[in-house]
Nucleic acid binder design. Structure first.
Lengths: 141, 141
DNA sequence: CTGTCTGCAAACCATTTGCAATCGT
DNA sequence: ACGATTGCAAATGGTTTGCAGACAG
């Protein structure tokens, strides 16, 4: 999604377009990958020297709530974000904590063909996460 | 798995069988569901009044490491445990935070037929988590 | 103008840690 | 005995909160 589209989306939902929000949207666009709040903050502070962590968290929460990014619980004290919202699964390395985007035929199958047990539930999202050791960490082991 | 089997497993891996560990293993056996550390602690303190949270965390970590239980990252500050390690997926209610065990045909399919991108990786586990609103919370909404 | 958003610093809280005493083997 | 484990209390660290001032619409 283009930056402008994201901004229009937020505007249409009643959010104010502050320079901090624009900066973070741009950062997420320019740095594909899986940044955490800390990393977003480090980039943001260069575009906007007075920005605070509280604002970063605030903006990330808005973006997540509006379905613009996905949060990934990597481990107890590491939450990363994924600005690619196309259906895909993740691999998390238990050693280096890196997150890999993994295309998965099953991801879409799982969302389309829900288990009977979920018939009465409202299913909003699916997380399909493999964990283990990435190829680099596997060698070093 | 029977309590005795779990104890034998731990013993065979060099762990000491302390009454605290036995108490927690029994608690997990007797209270199916998805308790958190706090809930385990509340039960444990009745069997063993001097037990501390640190010990509960210690034991849960051992059990998780040895594949006897699974940890579920429900939300930022809520981690629950599942003592059922048979292959199945989870549904987490975004409102009441309850965890539901969901049988899933795809869970096993995902583990057996790994995406090509994971060929060089060591895959140790899979999490398949649906999120949304459970039937009760859906009504109240 | 008006109510939302930001930045600061302090608060939060589940989890972890250091360490002396205890206990399993 | 000996080293693993416990319990306590303090520390940790990512995230949240309260609030006064700034600012978008």
């Amino acid at each position: 999604m283009e930056i402008k589209d994201t901004i229009d989306l937020l505007k249409s939902r009643g959010y104010r377009i502050t320079p901090q929000r624009v900066a973070i949207i741009r950062i997420l666009k320019d740095h594909e990958g899986h940044p955490g709040a800390e990393e977003v903050f480090r980039y943001a502070i260069q575009l906007y020297p007075n920005i605070s962590m509280a604002t970063v968290y605030n903006v990330m929460e808005v973006l997540e709530k509006e379905g613009i990014i996905r949060a990934i619980a990597v481990s107890k004290n590491l939450r990363l974000y994924d600005s690619d919202i196309k259906p895909h699964s993740h691999f998390i390395c238990n050693s280096c904590r890196k997150v890999f985007d993994i295309p998965s035929n099953y991801y879409e199958a799982c969302t389309k063909e829900l288990p009977l047990e979920l018939a009465d539930f409202e299913v909003d999202s699916l997380e399909l996460i493999y964990k283990g050791l990435c190829s680099d960490c596997k060698k070093t082991k």
